[in-house]
């Protein structure tokens, strides 16, 4: 079952459904009765991208059209923005291939920008050479009517460093999935996420990390804020295979629910088959602290302002972990707009 096959064959029977354990909270089969026709090309000029000023190379893939091939030769550094634009009521699939050579560095700023009631699927592959470093910042701004699934396969090499931060406001249904093959060998992985959901938005952050060798580390922190009738889904799975000894893995997921009708579903899983493994995980779902809110209001902040301050501080812990200064501030400003809007 896959959305890309369903789009290609216009066959709803191919859609992932809640019968698939992995998709039970993001049921596309139950949602989409008929797949829309293929999206037509996007006409006219595009607005500037949020990260345009930070990069040397800008790649745009609109309604599934456009080549996204990034190849950073060994030892070099590249700054690239990658925009996936959906502007249609149709269906389309896109793909991107990213290769980062040994010792090379890639700063990748990826956005999803949507308008309309589209159904979109995006596949990305990342292959990192030994000692390669990637910082991937994903800002997902799908439309309230859009269905979007992004699926990344990441292959690390020893001593590689892959740091990812996904920040999303969800969609009608949206899933951002990252699967990482982790060879150990002192490679390090950071997989962070923030979801800020209002009205009927749905976002699903799914990650699967498989540690296959000695001495690997994974650090994961996801935080969400959901209000109205929104729904956040976090599925985080870390598998430490037999022989992947001395793996260090941390996973945290924390969500704030700001209304009675909002919902968060979380499934953190650590599966450990190796020895001498340091693993920690924490998962909390709660409301804003009423006492802290009163304290802020006693000092003069309106309820709206006090809530915004406390929720921005809550997700700030994740945003602060973005390495690149300018990108971090772009993301922070985008998040503040969502929280105050």
């Amino acid at each position: 079952m896959s959305l890309s096959t369903a789009i290609r064959d216009r066959d709803v029977a191919e859609l992932p459904s809640k019968r698939d354990e992995d998709w039970r909270w993001t049921d596309l089969r139950g949602l989409i009765r008929v797949l829309p026709p293929p999206s037509s090309p996007v006409e006219g000029d595009l607005d500037a991208g949020r990260f345009d000023e930070l990069v040397q190379r800008r790649i745009v893939v609109a309604n599934g059209r456009g080549e996204a091939v990034i190849d950073v030769p060994a030892g070099e550094t590249a700054w690239v923005s990658l925009r996936f634009i959906s502007a249609s009521d149709g269906a389309h699939a896109a793909s991107a291939s990213i290769v980062v050579g040994a010792g090379a560095t890639l700063h990748l700023f990826e956005t999803y920008e949507g308008q309309g009631a589209y159904v979109a699927q995006t596949s990305l592959t990342f292959a990192l050479g030994e000692g390669a470093a990637v910082e991937r910042v994903v800002l997902a701004n799908d439309s309230a009517g859009g269905v979007s699934v992004s699926q990344a396969e990441v292959r690390l090499a020893p001593r590689a460093d892959f740091a990812q931060t996904v920040v999303t406001s969800g969609g009608r249904r949206q899933r951002i999935e990252t699967r990482v093959a982790h060879p150990g060998g002192h490679a390090s992985l950071r997989l962070d996420g923030v979801y800020l959901l209002a009205e009927k938005a749905h976002a699903d952050l799914t990650t699967v990390v498989t540690h296959d060798g000695l001495d690997g580390s994974t650090e994961q922190l996801t935080k969400g804020v959901v209000r109205d009738q929104a729904r956040g889904v976090f599925q985080g799975r870390i598998v430490v295979a037999e022989g992947a000894d001395r793996t260090d893995a941390k996973m945290g997921h924390h969500a704030l629910i700001l209304s009675d009708k909002a919902e968060v579903d979380a499934k953190p899983e650590l599966e450990i088959y190796a020895d001498d493994v340091a693993c920690a995980h924490g998962n909390t779902v709660g409301a804003l602290d009423d006492d802290a809110l009163f304290y802020a209001r006693q000092r003069g902040m309106s309820e709206v302002e006090a809530r915004a301050l406390l929720t921005e501080a809550f997700i700030g812990e994740v945003i602060d972990r973005i390495d690149q200064d300018e990108a971090r501030e772009v993301v922070r400003a985008w998040a503040a707009e969502r929280l105050r809007g």
């Binding site: 802020a296 000092r299 003069g300 902040m301 302002e305 301050l309 406390l310 921005e312 501080a313 700030g316």
Partner: peptide, 17 residues
């Protein structure tokens, strides 16, 4: 107040007032 520097908190309060 986790995540909110004292200065930010006080400035926000003062300006709100």
């Amino acid at each position: 107040i986790p995540g909110v520097p004292a200065l930010t908190f006080i400035r926000t309060a003062l300006n709100a007032q």
